[in-house]
């Protein structure tokens, strides 16, 4: 029998509520609000309360999927990244860099958001950058 409480941060939105994961016998079983966390002071919204569900869900994707012959098929990260890069290149060649837009997320960190906008501006060559917090 193994029971652990793991402090973490909710990944569902930019608020960043403190959560505690309850892990029993290596399996994530439940989420609790961290009572002493300065951001949420022991409260969560419904998404935070159910964080464990997407981790243990049967529907969770564990590898990238590529649509081939009209059907989604499991693939490797190398292949998925290469396919995306090739597609982006051909779109940019045909229609110019402003045909691409990059929508950033509150679910990733500040630094990851920075890297993503840098990728849009420096690699793709567009200022079409927006964030889900503005929707």
């Amino acid at each position: 029998m193994d029971f652990k409480i793991i402090p973490s941060t909710c990944s569902y939105c930019g608020t960043g509520c403190g959560v505690l994961f309850q892990v029993m016998d290596g399996r994530l079983i439940d989420t609790l609000p961290m009572k002493t966390h300065p951001v949420n002071e022991g409260k969560l919204c419904i998404k935070g309360w159910n964080l464990h569900e997407h981790v243990i869900s049967d529907k969770r994707l564990k590898s990238p999927m590529i649509r081939k012959d009209g059907e989604l098929q499991e693939s490797t990260w190398d292949e998925a990244i290469q396919t995306s890069a090739d597609k982006f290149k051909s779109i940019i060649n045909d229609h110019g860099p402003d045909s691409v837009g990059v929508l950033l997320s509150a679910k990733i960190t500040n630094e990851e958001n920075y890297v993503a906008q840098k990728f849009a501006r420096a690699v793709i060559g567009t200022n079409n950058v927006d964030h889900c917090a503005r929707l």
């Binding site: 029971f3 652990k4 409480i5 402090p7 403190g18 505690l20 009572k35 002493t36």
Partner: peptide, 28 residues
């Protein structure tokens, strides 16, 4: 843990951790 009083499961295997057992001012 990381400056927060958190619930913790103490066991015989990690008996030395008992030195860290506190009452904590946050209740769960």
């Amino acid at each position: 843990v990381q400056g927060h009083p958190l619930p913790h499961c103490f066991t015989k295997e990690n008996i030395d951790e008992i030195d860290d057992l506190i009452v904590g001012n946050a209740r769960y």
